[in-house]
Each structure stands twice: as C-alpha cells, then as structure tokens.
Design a binder for these strands. Sequence first.
DNA 1: CCTATTCGTAAGGGCAGAAAACAAATTAAT
DNA 2: ATTAATTTGTTTTCTGCCCTTACGAATAGG
Lengths: 420, 420
Amino acid sequence: MRDTTGAGGTGPACDQDRSTILRGSSGQEGARGRPASQQGMRQHNLALVMGTVAADGPVSRAAVAGRTGLTRAAVSSLVDELLAGGLLTELGPASNGRVGRPGSALAVSERGPAGLGLEAGVGHLGACVTDLRGEVRVWTQVESANAALAPAEVLARLSALADDATRQAAELGLRPVAAVVAVPGLVGDVPGTVDHAPNLGWHDVPVASLWPGELPLRVENEANLGALAELWAHPVAADFVHVSAESGIGAALVVGGRLFSGARGLAGELGHMPVHPEGSPCSCGARGCLEQYAGKAAVLRTAGVTGVGGDVIEALAARAGQGDARVLEALEQAGTALGTALAGAVNLLDPAAVVLGGAYAELGAWLLPSMRRELAARVTVRSWDPDALTVSQLGRRGPLLGAALATVRTILEDPAALWS
Amino acid sequence: MRDTTGAGGTGPACDQDRSTILRGSSGQEGARGRPASQQGMRQHNLALVMGTVAADGPVSRAAVAGRTGLTRAAVSSLVDELLAGGLLTELGPASNGRVGRPGSALAVSERGPAGLGLEAGVGHLGACVTDLRGEVRVWTQVESANAALAPAEVLARLSALADDATRQAAELGLRPVAAVVAVPGLVGDVPGTVDHAPNLGWHDVPVASLWPGELPLRVENEANLGALAELWAHPVAADFVHVSAESGIGAALVVGGRLFSGARGLAGELGHMPVHPEGSPCSCGARGCLEQYAGKAAVLRTAGVTGVGGDVIEALAARAGQGDARVLEALEQAGTALGTALAGAVNLLDPAAVVLGGAYAELGAWLLPSMRRELAARVTVRSWDPDALTVSQLGRRGPLLGAALATVRTILEDPAALWS
DNA sequence: CCTATTCGTAAGGGCAGAAAACAAATTAAT
DNA sequence: ATTAATTTGTTTTCTGCCCTTACGAATAGG
C-alpha cells in the first residue's frame, strides 16, 4: 500500500495494538487508544530490532541501526536485552572484506522460545513446533476419526500429541510458549470457543476450557491460519486473498500483512457468494451459491467420484492426471465458478494477489485455466495480472504451519512480553 | 473488533503511521516500521488528548486523564501545548455539583485551523469549510457543466469557489490548512492524480499540478469520501460497507475506522459484481454485472424515465412517490440486484453495518425492502440483523462534507504537525 | 608501521511521562 | 461561620529512553 505523505521526517512512533496476530483488530479498539509510554517505546523498538534481524538474516548491530534508523547505541542496548532473553544469538565477528572493524553477526536464536501448532481435522490430528526463525523442527500427524469422538476426547488425544511434540522440541532446546489449534469451523466472538464446526460435529465447544494441556491455547479457523502461513512462510504480498476448501469454501483476507476477520470475526465466507442466483438451491437456503459448483461435495458428485476411501483429493488429482473426462469437466466447471466469485472479490478488494491454498492447491493445475479465464474476463476495470493468481506451495500443510507460526509472530512482535 | 488478550497492562505505545486518513495503508509499509521516539510519543499523546476532548465534549483535564490513562500532570502539559496551538479552548471553571474543586472545561476550538472540502461533480462545483469540531461553517455549491470544460478550467472555477469559501471562513476566524477535492472517478496510485473519471471526461489528470490555489490539495474518490463522512459525522460502526451510485456503483469499505483502498487504491468496485453471470453484456466485457441491473442508467431505462432534464434522481423519487408502477418495478429490481451483490460482500467481509449512501439514499424507501429480503435470504451463515442495513442521512452531501472533514481528521490525528 | 574506516560501547544531555507533594476551589459537616 | 473532606490543576523530583558525542577496538590499505 502507500503513504502519500513524504513523511519519514520525525521518527513517529509505535504500533497501535500488539498481540493482534489472530483475531486482531485493525485499529480503533473502542477506546481511542492507550497512552504512549516509554515502555511502549522500548517494546516497539525491541520488536523493530527483532524483526529486522529476522528478516535480513545475520546482521551486525550497525547494520540494524542503519536499517531501522535507530542509533548504534540504542541498538546495542536493545540487542543486549534480546540476547539476555535468548531471542537472539551472537554469531561472533564476521569479516565481510570491507575496510573497518568487522561487525558481530546477530541471528535469531534457533533454540529457546518456540511456537506449538496443533490441528484437529476431520480425519487426523497434527502437531508442529517451529523455532523463532520460522523453521519447522517437529512435525507429527496421526489419523483419528475425530467426527466420531466427543470434543473432550479429541482434545485429550491432541494434548497427548502435543506433549509428544513438546518432548521432541525440548531435545532440540526449544520451549513452546503458547499453542494455537487449527479447526475446520467458525471461530466467532468468544475467544477460545468454536462456534460451529459441522464436519467435526462441534457446536459452541469451549476448546480453551476443555484443553487439558498446560500451555495457553488459542483457537483459529484453519483457512485463516493457512493464509497466514502463506504470508509468513512465502510472502508474496501484504494484501491478498487466500482461497481454500475444507469445510465450505473459505477466503481468508490478508490486509496490510494482517488477517482481516471482520466485525464479528466471521469474514471470509466465499462459499455462499452468488454465482448463479437462480441456480440450484443451497443448504444455506439461498440459490446458486458457489459451494454448489465448486464445493468439495459438488465437485466429487459432478466428477462421478463416489465411495472412494482415503484421500478423495488425491484420488481426484490422480484421475484428472489420467485424463478422466468427467473429472476434468468437473474441475473446469469448479474453476469457472471460483473465478466468477473471485472476480467479485477482486473487484471489491483490489488485492495484490490471489492464492489458491488448502486442498485446492493440489488441484491447481486443472483449476487455474478456467479461473484465470473467468478472472480476466470479469476484472476489467483495473489491469489484472494473470500471474497474480498463484497456487500455494504449502497446500494442506498450511493450517498446521500457520498455527505454529502464529505464536512465533506474537513473540517477534512483542519480545518483551516473554520476560517482563 | 476485538482483542483477545486481556492486555491493557503496560501502556503500549503509539500509532503506526499517521496521515493515512486518505489513501492510507493498514500498516506494514514495506519497511518494517520506523523507530519509536520521544517525539512520536508526544505526537501520539497529543492526538490522544485531542481525540478525547473531541469525542467527549467539554471535559476537564482530570477527566481526560482518567479516560486516557495519562497522569493529570502529563495531560496538563499536553493541553497547554494544544491551547497554545489554538486547537483547544478553555471554557473556564464549570461546577458540576460534585464535591471538590471544579475542573476547567476544555473544548475543541471553533476557530483557528479548519478543513476545506471541494467537489467537482458532473454538473456542479462545491466548497465547504468545517471547523475542528466537524461543524459545517461554510457551504457553497454552484452549477457548472464540467464535462464540457477542460480540467484546468474546471479547477480554475473551483479555485475561485474555494477562495470565496476561504474568505467567508476567515470572517468566522477559520483558517483552512489543506484542501481535499472529491471527484467522481478512480484515484489510483499516483497521488494527486485522477486516473479515470468517465463522467467528467478526465483521463490521467494531474489535479494537484493543475491546481491554481495555494493550499495543498489532495484528490479522493467521492464515494470514499462519502463513506468517511458517514463514519465521522454519524458513526454507527467502525467496520461497514458504504454503497453509493454516482459513476458506476461504488462500495467504499471502512475497516477499523479507516478507509480500505486495496493494494493499488482501487478497492470498492461493486458495479461489476456478477449478479446474473449469463445475463446481459456489460460495458466491461463481462456479463450480468450489477451495474446492468442497479446502475443509474439501467434503472432509468427500466423505469422508462428518459429525457428528463435536471435532477433525474429527484424525478425518480417523485414518480416512485406517486406510485408509478414501472418505476417501482425498476427500483424493486435494482434493490434485488443490489441485495444479491451485497450479500456476497457481507459474507466475505462480515461488516457491522451496510450504509446506503449517495444518490441511492434518496431512493432508500423503495430500495430497502428488496435489498433486505435478498440479504436475509443470502446471508445465513451468520446471523444478519436487517437493521444493519441503513440509509445515509447525508445522501449526496456526503462527499463534500467528507472532503472537508478529511483535513480535520488529519489535524486531530497529528496536532503537532500544525506548528512543528 | 601508520592511517582511514567501521564497529561496538560509554558518558552526558534532553525530553517525556510517572510519582508525589502542594495550593486552590468547592461541598458537606460541625 | 468554620472546619474537614474532596477534587482539581500545578509544581517538583525522579526514572527511563533515545540521541549526541567521544573513545577504544579491529580491520584493510598504503
């Protein structure tokens, strides 16, 4: 995005509200804001240094000072604090061939605080630990027919998996400080509560309360976490729309590098975008919703793929690869419907990119052509670059990765919270 | 929106980037942020005090301190600076009947710095001056067939109108510090430039360069300014969608109390949302766009209103009021199409409200029923309150008012910029 | 070996808000 | 009427943070 003011003059200030990685507001929290204090200043600058080191690889204090606008003295003080907290590591003098005393390279620690991501899917459970660099250090998934279990039982099993992952992390010198669980359902107003997860059979499940583990737990929709994983692991733009199909068709919106969750946290419902207003009736009561044409069930039905055990997406991709005409036709039709709906979203939001993620990522080869065609035909007011529609490299791993990275990002955005 | 962390603990800090009232980003400006300085702290707290006084009417220093979390001493210092700058006025001791020494009431000054709003419509020019309280103090409009004139000539006439308004303002003790002009067209990447205003016949017009006036001038799309006027003058929510039809059908998105302009500043195009994908061809090349059913031209055609001189919207409202069946039918159909398109937007964005503004506001009585019906039918995933769809009280006055208020908000968000 | 350059640190200063103390103005009680 | 209690606004002292300036340390080049 832009800043029309030349600005840059007086170093302004800080960040509006932190810890808004998940379910975060975009500003204005009812109150007109909180007073700026020197502690807040320190917080901001700690995060600034941390972020610079994280983004620009091993760098010297002087380089950090140059890039942030802080003085070397200030950076030294901030780095000292981050070193003491175990968030940064000093790699020692690194001669770079240039004249002058070589700087001491700083890097984000690969030990110490970490993020624990969890996933409760319909047919599996997952756990993942990432270090502060964002690297995946532990990754576990087990099959589990969660829809047939009570929520508490699912969470008990997930907690066991989390304990296992935490043990493995401990051997690597990593200490998860918080956990985030990805669920295929709506996470609305009440924090830590799943409003509605039809595929799991969950309704108003107070996950945070039922959680037997000791780490603080937050819940988030898996589509949103998949989008954030894309943002954090493979950043292509700060403003994009991430489309994925798990339960329904979700469009996570990333605005200015932050997840946009709407007034009640329910933004991103793309599945019921009208595509053929007079078309087939949808379970939502309306007619011609996108889900009726591009939803998982609709695609399988049109493709004639029924009663396949195991991974239906893989089966679909396999048949498409073999040239199964009916499957190709179904995917082409789904792509057209997706493209039509996305065209509306693109016209409305003007994102820098559209990312096809989740299960759709694996079908990208067959969905992209018709999506691109429809987008090109319908996004004409502005110039639309066909390459702005891309396929996620993370696919179905996105949500679990995003869940772990969410905690890491929280630490990076407020390092002082760890030890103060 | 929400903040799931209890937070509130250590007073955090400041605001990310100021002067982002128009064309503002939502954070992350490429650089990872600028360092927090003591000047930035002061800036933030000045704005905090200013905002508190502006929002809560005449209040004492102690009340400001209580509401903001600053100490009384700090508030005193900040208020002194704002008084010296002429942004606040001391109304003197005001006994409120409670025990203790009465506080001295502070109010936003009704003299001094002000905002100048300008409007270049298809058939008229407008100028408006608002004081820091947001009150309209000068309001002038003249007819002018701008589409038949060269942009430079339009701006020359507008400048004369602006000078006139500035003179009137001076008599009231008001001194406009910046001007914003509302235009019915796309304002894209280049600041101060209108990319495309079909109804004016403008293409890539460098308005800021052509401007003969002396005040700094910024350009913004009139639909966006209308939405901001709604936000600032009649705040109903911090997250809403504002629909208006001037040239095309624009949906300005307000997210967290800020205008969302998309990656390239082109967000908000609702006119080409697919409503009947196989329907009548649209000028954009696609088929069945909303504009073909709810655009001004489409409504007039369906309503059988042709060749009416003067204000076609007023004519339409008059005939609808008389019970003209064809007009009623046209408006009902337009409302249905609008509702369908908005349902998609609501599902996608989960706004707290939808506001019908601009010319549509005057037709609200006939558009609302079918819009509400369609929204209720299509927004079913979440609960949808029919009253969340409201009609703007500003109507076509919105853009001009918003243009003037934009400057006022800029001052309120960074008072120090005026004298530093 | 000496100089120029760059890096990291240390000392002094300025600035902003916090904390505490104080004077002023009002209400309530004596 | 007088005194006590309470709230307000200011003053003073203190702390914390970053900036400026200065200095030792370490390297490359002459």
